[in-house]
Design a protein around this nucleic acid. Structure first.
Lengths: 337, 337
DNA sequence: ACTTGGCACTCAGAGGTAGGGAGTGCCAGT
DNA sequence: ACTGGCACTCCCTACCTCTGAGTGCCAAGT
């Protein structure tokens, strides 16, 4: 269907269009790439590519522009992920090594990624459910108020206030704390609810109301999937682009946690790059954007995802290289801390 | 210098320009406001106002537009803060009451403020230094690694990892924890460093290296002023405005923590509204924006600030009302939790 | 069967021009 | 001190033309 030269032409069109942001014509193509044939021949190829839906004309008598389908083919078969330069690698290292807690790691990562790609970077906090309990802490903060602190092996710390019906003694707290930790230590968060289900039964009758209150808050914390935090940075880079739709839509989408989550896609294996181009995108307002995302995590288990959002007209090889490199490096950082 | 009518004219100009976004002329002015005089008279007044620098013409034969100086006068002497409607008050309550921890309070506040004003909202996390210690927790997370958790009376939780030279026993941790809490309980963070200065001297010789490590991390956490977190939301609302400079500049400024901090101004008394108009602004890229900010906190002590950023052409009375109301309400929420 | 040069055709964008209209400043009269 | 009248300015829009890049197609060449 598409011989080698036609593919080469498509690749050339994508590359030129990405770098110039102008519809590319047959003449310019043969000038810039040595294709060994005349413009007229290229025109024929282009006609075929257009018929098949890989490229399109903004209007008659203009050059061609890749369609989403064209970019898709380019990404799948015509490009290779571009490894980062030494300088870029070093930048990643120095930038991320200074981080001192999870919050800081995420903040730095998202800024780094935005800077590297000159686009909008999106980073999801390591998922709670896939990680495991490192420690549970129960702290009295007032007469009838406790603070529950949950620390996971990814360094994430969750806190919730618990209101109790009656004052709680120091002893009860100590007992509960010990109980919680024996039940939960090292436990996968996904399995935690069952591990603590019988908590109220294991304390003195007087303490049961308190235990129940603690339990309910704990469960709430554990199942809080929708709370998976996502942050973004580099919105300013959007200004450089002119989108099909107003980029108000894009900004609005970015401020919606839920949309952002879905944008990155399902958490799958680590280090698998996902590319979602234009209309492949779930969200209405992001029809003219593409997303390059990857999972990251400790070992080969992905804890969460991170990625980049930009115009469909994007340097895919470069962006993919940056995303992959950053994802790997963040994984290492998390494993080491 | 400026008689009452001239002031009324200026007020009318500001109001009209804010609502229509078009230079306002003498004819329209007398039509929409009953000033009781003819356009020609108004023209004379406008000439004076222009000469004094309160208004300007974009070009000859166009209407007048308020200058920064004009807005300043308007804010200082010609307008009153507009109280919110009942519906808006209720919205604030329902929106903020569901919050379950500090993070959530801040997140909700910033979104609420953005929605109410249809502009960019900026909220600073309650400052550490002004609040006091509610509890310190020390948790072993690995052989040679401790987690220090600091809980303040504003509900803020700070965590830091501590690396120790050698393994630490459970006993040592318990002792240190108790010691820290007796030293620090209820202590103002500003005074905390002196309160714990002698920590290493109060433990057994063997434990001193550990105590020193803990102490240094704790001090680090306490003095970490530059880390004052600031968040913003509602960037999408910027799209509706056309700025003098590219709004890339504005977005870039918003993503800089430092700039954002300075934007809100010095933390002063609670509930004092600060308005900074156009060039009064410290930052280069924000010369065509105004900031309305207020302190918020528990009681009359301001812990931090929050505010709104928008075009100089802004509904000042309404914005000021919203900022003031939200600041007060957040203060209540913090006090009650 | 593919490639090529030639050629007529199309159409977006740049640049130029004219007319309308909103607004002003000034002046003389009340 | 205010007002109506009037000449003037100049932005904005609509309309025009013209240029040039790019195309599709065809007939000839390999």
């Amino acid at each position: 269907m598409l011989d080698d030269r036609k593919l080469a032409v498509l690749r050339a069109i994508v590359e030129d269009y990405v770098s110039t942001n102008e519809p590319v014509g047959s003449k310019g193509l043969v000038d810039r790439h040595n294709l060994g044939v005349s413009p007229a021949t290229i025109r024929n190829d282009m006609a075929v590519l257009e018929e098949q839906g890989y490229i399109a004309q903004p209007h008659t008598s203009a050059g061609r522009v890749p369609t989403d389908k064209g970019y898709r083919l380019f990404v799948d078969r015509l490009s290779t992920v571009k490894p980062l330069s030494k300088a870029e690698r070093r930048a990643i290292e120095t930038f991320l090594n200074g981080a001192y807690d999870l919050d800081d790691v995420v903040r730095r990562t998202v800024r780094l990624l935005a800077q590297l790609t000159r686009q909008v970077a999106v980073v999801q906090y390591p998922s709670l459910t896939r990680s495991s309990v490192r420690h549970v802490e129960l702290v009295p903060v007032a007469d009838q108020r406790l603070l529950l602190v949950l620390i996971t092996n990814t360094g994430r710390v969750e806190q919730r206030v618990i209101e109790t019906q009656s004052p709680v003694t120091e002893d009860t707290i100590t007992q509960l704390r010990a109980l919680l930790n024996t039940c939960l230590d090292g436990c996968r968060l996904a399995e935690a609810p069952t591990a603590v289900a019988d908590l109220p039964d294991r304390v003195a009758v007087d303490d049961r109301p308190v235990a129940a209150a603690v339990l309910s808050v704990l469960l709430e914390t554990l199942v809080e999937k929708h709370d998976e935090k996502v942050v973004f940075a580099g919105a300013a880079n959007l200004a450089a682009v002119d989108f099909a739709q107003s980029f108000r839509d894009v900004l609005e989408a970015l401020e919606e946690q839920v949309v952002l989550m879905r944008l990155l896609g399902e958490t799958g294996d680590s280090s698998t790059l996902t590319v979602r181009i234009g209309t492949e995108n779930p969200h209405e307002g992001l029809r003219s954007t593409s997303v390059v995302a990857a999972g990251y995590g400790v070992g080969d288990q992905a804890l969460a995802r991170l990625g980049v959002l930009g115009p469909t007209r994007m340097d895919y090889p470069g962006t993919m290289g940056a995303v992959r490199a950053v994802a790997r490096y963040v994984g290492q950082i998390l494993a080491g801390s």
